[in-house]
Amino acid sequence: MKRLLLAGVALSVASAASAADLRARPYPKAAAPATVVAAYNWSGFYVGAMGGYGWGSGDSDASGGFGGGTVGYNWQLPGSQFVFGVEVDAAGASIKESVTGDVGGGVLGTADSKINSFGSVTGRAGFAIDAALLYAKGGYAWANHKVSASVPALGLASSDSQTHSGYTIGGGLEYLFTPNWSAKAEYMYTSLGGETYTVLGVPVDSGNIDFHTIKVGVNYHFR
């Protein structure tokens, strides 16, 4: 009987010790769910600097460089990859061509044409892939254009400048390389209506002024 009691006590002690061990044994906690990082939001104001190269369209041989600045604003709804915006830019330019020919009797004359400055007010629509933005843009454009003519043998020289208005359309790629700074590359086609110039006392209709530009730039985004 004593042996049975001792065996029962031993079994009870062993069971209690096992239960206590189970209660005290630590179990690893489930890993916290990974934090989902939302795609970058492009909304806000920005300013920037840009420059590039332009060339004439059609029978125009005008070409040259330009440089200027940009200011704009983007809207992007949370959870959406579509970006809409308004952008204003302006640049000083030296997109020019020169033609020399016989004006009569073997006398040579030279005509020069130059875009001194240009700019635009455009709307932008783009598709954002995190830090990259593919976009199209278009809107109002203007340019200050100067025409000069000279006939050195006769001591004649004259010039006139006019501001032309029209439209511009194109697109590009912008990439945020830091939360506040982005770089961009852009192509634009610009078509401007004609104006009348007075050169050497003669009115001259310029016809449309069409040109292409490729520009690169950097923008600072205010957050």
Score class of each variant (00 low, 15 high):
165 S>V: 09
66 F>G: 02
88 V>P: 00
116 N>D: 15
130 D>C: 09
145 H>W: 11
141 A>T: 07
116 N>H: 03
91 A>G: 01
123 G>S: 10
195 E>G: 03
143 A>W: 00
108 L>K: 14
90 A>C: 01
100 T>M: 08
144 N>M: 03
136 A>K: 05
183 A>K: 03
94 S>Q: 10
97 E>I: 01
91 A>P: 00
95 I>K: 02
99 V>Y: 14
155 G>P: 07
200 L>A: 04
195 E>D: 15
157 A>F: 10
96 K>F: 02
78 P>E: 08
96 K>G: 13
85 G>M: 00
194 G>E: 07
77 L>T: 10
144 N>K: 13
75 W>L: 14
200 L>N: 04
136 A>G: 15
88 V>A: 15
190 T>G: 06
63 S>L: 05
136 A>L: 15
143 A>E: 05
178 T>K: 06
169 I>W: 13
122 T>D: 12
167 Y>M: 13
153 A>I: 10
81 Q>T: 10
83 V>N: 00
63 S>N: 15
151 V>H: 09
140 Y>A: 14
75 W>G: 04
188 M>T: 12
200 L>H: 02
139 G>M: 08
74 N>A: 08
72 G>E: 00
151 V>W: 02
173 L>M: 12
74 N>G: 06
91 A>W: 01
189 Y>F: 11
164 H>I: 06
91 A>Y: 04
180 N>I: 05
171 G>M: 10
98 S>H: 01
87 E>V: 12
180 N>S: 13
93 A>R: 00
122 T>M: 13
